[in-house]
Amino acid sequence: MTTPAETIGIGASSDTAFVEFRHELFAAGLLHPTSVDGVYGKSAAYERIVEGVLASVTRLGVGRFEAVHFPPVLARSTFDRTGYLSSFPDLMGSLHVFEGNDRAHTELVRRYEADGDWSEILKPAEVVVCSAACHALYPLCTGRLPEAGRWFEIQGYCFRHEPSPDPTRMQTFRMHELVCVGDPDMAVTHRDSGLADGLRMLRDLGLEMDAVPANDPFFGRLGTILANTQLEEALKIEGVTPIYPTEKPTAIMSANYAQDHFGSSFSIETASGNVAHSSCVAFGIDRITLALLHAHGLDPYRWPPEVTDRLWR
């Protein structure tokens, strides 16, 4: 069993490779730094690639999937039902806001001016930052599903607190997911066909892709049991591409069978009255964008026409 840090291969030599690639992205004006690792401004050229990647994923699901775009925040009550806090407490982010009176405001400002901890005055908001784009979807499915299940194309921003010099490990990033909620056969079939479609789409964009069994970076000793179970049952498969020469290839998409996890948490039933199963095929839009920049060069307007014709058709 490897630790999450080992899985992503953080070490002295990889830090150098991360910093070099990030420096190239800064120098080319594609990304702009902020005062923290993993949070960047993006250029128009970068966003043009993002739009092309988003459109490519949409084309995979056109006509079959209902499109829903979610904002970067999620109802706290929904978050509480996802189980994310138990499995990934170190990655989640909670929003806190000021709801006090004049006296509390005075104390807030006093602490701010004294370089004190003003955040203690805040209260948890009714929203948290999204950890996974599909989380907001499941409350919409509560109840009994139609015979054919439900199929969604989800777009949203995610937050994961894992600051890193690796530009492919952003704290906020866009996920585009194709989600199936239905019976177990539907969910597994979707996971497998979506993986194949996704790999083909990414190979067509000129990326060298491989599919590997994977586990999520579950927290702690519970995480070790969950990760081993996920690997033993082959629930998660990642589509990976080489970005750093001395590191393991980077995951830029994943295909996940959640079994009845969300079905039971959100009281979703199949047409025949059983607990619904779900699967999602998730595309890391920023990581795909960075993989394309790595593969084809930092000026997207000079990329091979067979790539740009597909991306911006």
Binding site: M1, R221, I225, T229
Partner: peptide
């Protein structure tokens, strides 16, 4: 203390 190699579903 259950060692890392025992932290799998089959143990329980």
């Amino acid at each position: 203390e259950f060692p890392e190699e025992m932290l799998r579903r089959s143990t329980f």
